[in-house]
Design a protein around this nucleic acid. Structure first.
Lengths: 328, 328
DNA sequence: TATACTTGAGCAAACGATTGTTCAGATTCT
DNA sequence: AGAATCTGAACAATCGTTTGCTCAAGTATA
């Protein structure tokens, strides 16, 4: 068993409170005694029990992070950002993956609450749909990342709709007129928002969206979603496609290569996220750069600062033009 | 502040111990009282304080995971594996990134110990070099993943040397005779082991390694390491290269494409790890599949089982032949 | 020398839960 | 009716720290 204050106290022949004071420098004390106790504590390999400390002062310096999946490259960057700030402020992170399942998400949040974390960060929560009473009573600051407006919590997001419009605007700008949108089946808010942005861009052009240009795919991994989409795309006359995210775009481009369809000569492709692979794949992918690191940092900073009012941080994305798009 | 047993006790008009027993079903008690207390507890949104529980029974059901970096795709799979087992056994994970820095690694381990985790999992530890007294006194089970033999701990590893030999053996098998090895500058144990495997394969062929075929690169990201390596490779007459890991191989292949060097016609490339991108890149990468998920699962299982003796699990890898290699 | 102040360290309560022990009141038996 | 048993719930200790309060001994002051 780990060494306790009591153990040291017995060994030195003083009371536990004296040892405590010696170790963290509070209160009057003979300098010799302090030095001696410190040396014995070190010799015995004393490491304070954080549980006991936390119990006493109700701060745990632990933060719970609920992500969708560790496998997602975008998520990695998010965690990286959270980690950076957490580390410099001496917080420790709990990690839990929701797998896009709302029940799982609630379980994890509750588990974190049981552990009495000082704050919870949730990536793309599915909570907006139900207001679970178990969650509502939680009195720990929660920050949602990329989860459009939930009532009593902080939010750090990007404006999916406006950013999607940016991407499609660009395709219009370089001359494309028939532009597709490839997206997964989930009823995710962000998905709906990006679709709206896609529509906004058409509207701005005075164009009406052709429903057959919206490729809503069945439930697959993102990469496979992109691969599968090609068949449907070939049935239409689109000259460019905007994909819900980079992995879909990468899958699509991969399928193109196999089918001898040249990107960007035969088809322009735009992604969303700007994951690391986007600049490594061939051809390199034109995409909307999502500031994943900043989203993470910003969320963690918010928890540290504990503002009284609920905060809504909107972070700007940037269109990165690479080799997967070409003027028509 | 969260609701406590005391709060419920006051409200109901009983003692905290009665509430405790009512909630977890121990001891004699009037069924009505129990029901009533339970209903009030639920109404008040009671969530037990895990810190207090842990303090009492010295089990925290928390596991510390020390990884090198979240950004590494191999690491993602590892965490995924750990998570799977942890989740089903109701453990919660702490995450800390060492960034390949030994001081940071020790700090994180100590931080976990302070939190009184039930076990610690460390990926590619750098601890083998020093025996830090602070670490030695830690009496919590530690499992090292891919860290060849440290004394008093469990280990779950692959045999880098033998697996590297497998890769190079294959290149010999399909006719290559001049085979390079691209590796990063770190003095990592696994790097040395893979170099040994590369040498073993040559020895088995009765060949002596040509030192100019070993490309030890300066400190760069893995991807850049691969890209940079091409220049050096072109100065030699190698027809195939074995890369320390997949990211290096991918970087290398990317540079090849830019320079008009065709893989595998002009150069065969083999990687190591089998990260997700390996099968998505073009051309798909021949590589040694490292059972990342299994490594993670195995490590976590080991912590659960708490074997009395130190365990050394050696997991087998598999050569996956794809399109980046071609018989000479 | 008696009084006042300072110093050093122990006592005890508190944080929130669990659990062995005690104990009063109700029930059963003779 | 009196003794023995059972039932339901409170009491108190414990886990490891922290911290306000107390208190004895030592030093300085009058």
């Amino acid at each position: 068993m780990p060494v306790t204050l009591q153990d040291i106290a017995t060994r030195v022949g003083v009371s536990p409170s004296t040892v405590s004071r010696a170790l963290n420098g509070q209160g009057r004390m003979k300098e010799d005694t302090r030095k001696y106790i410190k040396s014995i504590a070190e010799e015995m390999g004393y490491v304070p029990n954080f549980l006991a400390q936390s119990l006493h002062d109700t701060k745990t310096r632990m933060i719970g992070v609920v992500i969708t999946s560790v496998a997602d490259p975008f998520t990695s960057q998010l965690i990286e950002g959270i980690e950076q700030v957490a580390d410099s402020a001496d917080y420790t992170l709990f990690l839990g993956a929701s797998k896009f399942d709302i029940e799982k998400e609630i379980d994890i949040i509750l588990k974190f609450y049981q552990r009495r974390v000082d704050g919870i960060i949730v990536q793309t929560s599915h909570l907006q749909t139900i207001a679970d009473p178990r969650i509502e009573t939680i009195d720990v600051p929660i920050v949602f990342i990329n989860n459009e407006s939930i009532s009593n919590a902080h939010n750090v997001t990007i404006d999916s709709r406006a950013e999607a419009k940016k991407a499609v605007d660009y395709l219009f700008l370089i001359g494309h007129r028939k532009i597709g949108f490839v997206n997964p089946p989930t009823k995710r808010h962000s998905n709906e928002r990006r679709l709206l942005g896609y529509q906004d861009a058409h509207e701005a052009q005075g164009q009406i969206v052709n429903p057959t240009h919206i490729f809503r795919m069945p439930m697959l991994s993102d990469y496979e979603t992109g691969r599968e989409a090609l068949n449907q795309i070939l049935d239409t006359d689109v000259t460019a496609v905007f994909c819900y995210d980079d992995m879909i775009a990468l899958g699509l481009m991969n399928a193109c290569r196999e089918r001898g369809i040249h990107v960007p000569d035969d088809l322009s492709v735009v992604g969303f996220d700007d994951i690391a692979q986007a600049s490594q794949f061939y051809p390199t992918l034109t995409t909307i750069h999502q500031p994943a690191l900043e989203l993470g940092r910003s969320a963690m900073t918010l928890i540290q600062d504990e503002p009284d009012e609920f905060v809504n941080h909107l972070l700007e994305c940037e269109l990165i033009v690479r080799d997967s798009t070409k003027p028509l």
